Amino acid sequence: MNKKYTLITGASSGLGSAFTLCCARLKMNLVLIALPGSTIKATAGELVRLYGIDVRVFEFDLTNRVAFDTHIAIIKKDYPVNFLINNAGMGGTVSMLDCAPQLIDKIIQLNIGCTALLTRELLPQLLQQEKSFILNIASMAAFSPIAYKTVYPASKAFVASFSLGLREELQQKGVSVSVAYPGPIMTNSDTSRRILLQGYKGRLGLFSTTDLASRIIRQTLAGRAEIVPGWWNQINHALMGLIPSTLKVRLISGAIKRELQLTH
């Protein structure tokens, strides 16, 4: 089989859905991974009709190791991947004491474990291609610890470190690794409500998910190592780099604490 595929995790909603559309418009064949019960199959059918590409759908929970091993074995056997987009992730805003242990475990498994494991599983296949790409989605939260989120920014800092280390390792082997740091994204009603509560400042780094996805994909295919989309996020990142870590944590965490108080 000469077809090559772009694999996207978390493909059914938010940024993952926007990546799916963006890659379809670029005439990439797709392998889409999403949780069961989404509308991903209907979306896939529409993309096939509109863009004449091949789209394969796998609905399973990436953190279920048995399901992971079973489905990834099929993908490795039947669908040569030359572009891996590790987009699936989750977080939450809650004090550590009120955070269920199961949620902590899930965030670590999905954001850290699945990103590393899926990359490792598909790496032999990616290395067989003349040119291939890995895109890992971190977050602006990766640049600082944040109280009341604690595990999420730490997991995204892992994604950043993992990506840049792997990029160096694969530098001469035809696999380009990029990591993107999107700011706030209005991916669902809860996230949207929290962003809007932050007022004008909270909305400054916002893009439509379609615009954001297209910027990130374009820069990934251009071989950029780190992608911070948007001038406001770039300025914010530069300014935060000048502030001592302890003060930075206090400033960012103060905003999160006020947000929590407004929602309770």
Rank of each mutant, 00 (worst) to 15 (best):
A213D: 06
S161M: 10
L166M: 02
A67M: 12
L32S: 08
I243D: 06
Q125K: 00
S208E: 13
A116Y: 10
N236Y: 09
I195F: 04
E169G: 06
G14M: 02
P184K: 01
S13A: 11
A141D: 13
F143K: 05
L127C: 10
M28L: 11
M186D: 13
I75N: 03
Q234A: 11
K131W: 06
D105P: 05
L62K: 01
S12Q: 10
S139E: 06
S253F: 00
C114G: 07
I75K: 00
Y181Q: 04
T263G: 10
N64V: 08
M140H: 07
A88H: 00
G230Q: 02
I33E: 08
F58R: 00
F19E: 11
L122N: 02
I227A: 01
A157I: 03
V48R: 14
L35H: 02
T209F: 05
Q172G: 06
I104V: 15
K201L: 15
I146S: 01
I104D: 12
N87M: 07
N64P: 08
A255I: 00
P244Y: 06
R65G: 08
K106M: 13
V55T: 04
C114T: 14
T263P: 05
A157V: 07
R203K: 15
L123I: 02
L135C: 05
V179A: 03
D69V: 10
Y152T: 09
T39W: 09
N29L: 10
F83E: 12
L47K: 02
F83G: 03
D61T: 05
S178Q: 06
Y181R: 02
L123S: 04
L127V: 10
G91H: 04
D190T: 15
P153I: 08
A11S: 14
G113H: 00
K201F: 12
L103C: 08
S245L: 13
V94K: 09
